[in-house]
Amino acid sequence: MPAAREQATRVAVDRIACTGHGVCAALLPRQITLDEWGYPIVAAADDPAVDVEAAVRLCPARALRPSRTTPQ
């Protein structure tokens, strides 16, 4: 449902696809920090849905998708 997608305020990371560019950390600073090797750590914080959209579109490895569940 497109409505669900528009409202997503969190991202999920495909760890196989992620190449550690860190674009997500720059666009979603509240939610994502980078580990010492430059790979994302997702925190349970919400970001504005438009920022989530942008991060999903701009991830160079196409490794992000909108999510509405809290990371474990």
Binding site: T19, G20, H21, G22, V23, A26, L27, L58, P60
Partner: peptide
């Protein structure tokens, strides 16, 4: 530069990726 190297600062990769696009 986007493919060949990971920038030390995430902001740099973001600008490079955006400009490239």
């Amino acid at each position: 530069t986007l493919s060949g190297r990971r920038s030390a600062r995430p902001a740099t990769s973001t600008v490079v990726a955006g400009l490239h696009r």
